[in-house]
Simulated scan of single mutants.
Amino acid sequence: MKEQDHRDEELEKIEVSLLLEGIYQRYGYDFRNYSHPSIYRRIRHRLKLEGLAEISALQGSVLRDADAFRRLLSDLVIPVTELFRDPEMFLAFRRDVAPELRRLPYVRIWHAGCSTGEEVYSLAVLLHEEGLLDKARIYATDINEDALQRARDGMIPIDRMKQYTKNYLAAGGKRDFSSYYASNHGIVMLKPALREKIVFARHNLVTDSSFNEFHVVFCRNVMIYFNTQLTNQVHELFYESLAQGGFLILGGRESLSFTPLAERYETWNDAQRIYRKTM
């Protein structure tokens, strides 16, 4: 029985590999070096929703039907975000990074894996309060065009604003948070002034190259889904994209430790995963 279970597991790994290769060849999205347990759970979830028994059947559906692919894509790139998510990180950025950015004549920031934009808008609010927004440009990118469109719209359900206001205050907010948005019929619309300094664009961390030199790169809770090979590849991309003395900010479950580039940064705030490029 155990031998049969092993064979079934190996067969499913092959099916997953073929599905991901097909997606890459057909649509250009590369999930081949994502963590297998994570990607497998999401594929099984989509199988259940589609009423399919085998991964091979899902492959046929996805390769022939763009709508089926978009449904699977929504599972593979699950957006988990909120305004001022992890407020301690934003507080650390306000205290430890913003003073360094004030020394610069202009500031370019890349927010990679921006999802639906909540953290990007949080950063815009923070930069405004620290007197940096007027000389800043934020490039917010994601692999998912649907998520990017939601980010461009800048609309948020009003029932989330109580938690978001709490996050804002914990992040060192200096004003009445309601001054940054207007509400209408249960929807919150963020003020246009926050969006003027943000460029939303599609970018694939796996297949696309660097497109500018940045003083700050945010990539939080994205690489937790990557295997070691892909994680190191993306770190190379960020290193190439950062100006000397630039800051790299990762998620709480991510670290530069044990990566080939660890010695080229200094730890600026270990608890909040803020690093500064030194060489």
Rank of each mutant, 00 (worst) to 15 (best):
T267D: 08
L250A: 04
N33S: 14
L132R: 05
L250P: 04
L83H: 03
A193L: 13
M1Q: 10
Y139S: 07
L63D: 07
K197S: 13
A53M: 09
D176H: 03
E21M: 11
I198W: 04
L18F: 10
L52Q: 08
P87G: 12
L261S: 00
G186P: 13
S122T: 06
V206C: 05
R175Q: 14
Y139L: 09
N269P: 05
A98F: 04
T141Y: 04
D153M: 13
L76W: 04
V62C: 06
V107G: 03
P260G: 05
E100T: 08
V216K: 04
L126G: 13
L18K: 13
K191L: 15
E196W: 10
F31K: 06
R71T: 04
S178T: 13
H6L: 15
L190D: 03
A92P: 05
T231V: 07
G51K: 02
G246C: 05
L73D: 08
I23Y: 06
S210G: 09
Y275C: 10
Q244W: 12
R152H: 02
N232P: 04
S17T: 14
F258E: 11
E54L: 14
R71D: 13
I39K: 03
V222S: 05
S241R: 05
Y34C: 12
L194V: 03
S115K: 05
E3F: 14
A147D: 01
L127C: 09
T165H: 11
H128V: 06
L205V: 03
K174W: 03
R273D: 11
Y239H: 02
E118S: 11
D96P: 00
I23T: 10
F258Q: 14
A57S: 15
S35C: 06
K166V: 10
G131V: 03
R32I: 02
I187L: 12
I187M: 11
F238A: 00
A170M: 15
L132E: 02
F200K: 01
V16S: 02
T228R: 15
